[in-house]
């Protein structure tokens, strides 16, 4: 499935779903270089990407255990020269729309405590809340917050 849409900020930017492994090299280049951000196309060249998945998660509600569908955003990367144009925000919005449509009850992600920009994006723009503090979560010993958005 190929979906062609233009962002409000920049009509030249095209958002594309992941197709197959032929795109992996480009994705890997992005996340290797600009790790912490995802995936759009400019003149056929990828400038950002978002990597996510859906899991079944155990939840306790009113003392009862049950399973629920939870979205997870693993990586969001935008090439540094294309930042501050709302591309990251558009990518997250698209993912949230898709996850909501797929009946997820919430979406989770982790962000470095020091990454104030990312936290602002998730918390202020989308209503993610800090659910948990993860001490020494990253390989560089950095702390993180687990953020969650409840649909």
């Amino acid at each position: 499935m190929k979906e062609k849409k233009s962002s409000e900020d920049d009509p030249t930017i095209e958002f594309q779903d992941y197709l197959d492994e032929s795109q992996l090299d480009a994705v890997m280049q992005l996340v290797t270089k600009d790790l912490s951000e995802p995936y759009s196309i400019d003149d056929g060249k990828p400038i950002g990407c978002v990597v996510c998945k859906i899991d079944q998660e155990e939840a306790i509600q009113n003392g009862e255990q049950r399973m629920m569908k939870t979205g997870y955003i693993g990586m969001l990367a935008v090439q540094s020269s294309y930042r501050r144009r709302g591309i990251g925000k558009s990518l997250v919005r698209k993912v949230l729309e898709r996850m909501k449509a797929m009946k997820c009850e919430s979406v989770m992600l982790e962000t470095e405590m020091s990454n104030v920009t990312a936290q602002k994006l998730y918390q202020r723009s989308f209503g993610f809340i800090r659910e948990e503090k993860l001490v020494r979560y990253y390989l560089n010993w950095g702390d993180a917050y687990r953020l969650r958005l409840w649909f």
Partner: peptide
């Protein structure tokens, strides 16, 4: 005042003190 596109303050309140 902020209104969120995908969630609401009611929902956040409910989950915070669930």
């Amino acid at each position: 005042e902020i209104d969120f596109e995908f969630t609401s303050k009611e929902k956040i309140f409910e989950k915070r003190f669930e």
